[in-house]
Amino acid sequence: MTLHWLIALAIITNIVVILTVPEDRSPTAIAMMQFHMALGLTVLVLSILRLVWRWMNPLPPPPQGLNHWIRISGAAMHHLLYFLMVAIPLAGWLMVSANHFSPSWFGLFHWPAFPGFAGLDKAAGHQWHETFESIHVVLGWAMVVLVPCHIAAGLYHHLVRKDNVLIRMLPGTRLREGV
């Protein structure tokens, strides 16, 4: 639950940052991009930890009486979100690694280049940078669409279905069983 909310906060913050960063090379824009990269790398690490946690701790059962299509769409949404939580920051890391750029992790240390990318020549690095930038942007827009859908689904469960799906994800709750 803690990982869910930390990752959610980081993703939403990163979406806001990237959508509001000035399109110039000003110190503000550079600082916002550095923050975006550091937070993205944090999402990558936390998401991998969350996947390990999920592998060791299966999901609680869904609410009883849940429509088959809602179960399938919910599972698909979760799988896609997990994929994006890893693939987006990974593509970003690959993108900056191809450019021989080592982002600072909140000023504490420089994140290393992805293995195998440190020795790329400038032309190959540029080509890989462009490829991973395209992937990063397309997947990022998918996340921009899916986050509000995920939030809406939680609100649908709480306000319309009146089941415990949202409640069991709130901090301080112990409710884990299906209703």
Rank of each mutant, 00 (worst) to 15 (best):
S134R: 07
M33D: 11
L159Q: 15
L59G: 08
R161T: 13
R54F: 01
T42N: 04
H100F: 00
A31K: 10
I151T: 08
V137R: 11
H129C: 02
F101E: 15
L66T: 15
F114I: 02
R71M: 12
G125W: 02
M33G: 03
H136E: 05
L44Q: 01
H79I: 10
I15L: 08
A91T: 06
W55R: 13
V144C: 06
L81C: 05
H4C: 07
L51P: 04
F35N: 05
C149P: 00
A98K: 01
M33F: 04
I15D: 11
V16I: 15
M33W: 02
A8I: 00
R54H: 05
S47P: 05
W55A: 14
L66I: 12
E130H: 01
V165Q: 08
E177R: 10
V16Y: 09
Y82F: 04
M37V: 05
C149Q: 09
A98C: 05
V16A: 15
P115T: 11
L59N: 12
M77S: 14
P103D: 12
Q64K: 15
V137S: 08
L159F: 15
V86G: 09
R161C: 03
G178I: 02
R71C: 09
I12M: 06
I15C: 03
H110V: 05
P61T: 07
I12W: 01
W69I: 12
T13W: 00
G116K: 14
S73D: 08
F117K: 07
R50K: 04
T28V: 12
T2I: 07
A87F: 06
G116T: 14
I7A: 02
G107R: 02
A91Y: 04
L81F: 01
G40T: 11
I135K: 10
L46E: 12
R50T: 03
M95R: 10
F109M: 12
G154R: 01
L94W: 10
T20I: 05
G178Y: 05
I88T: 06
L9N: 08
L41A: 15
R71A: 12
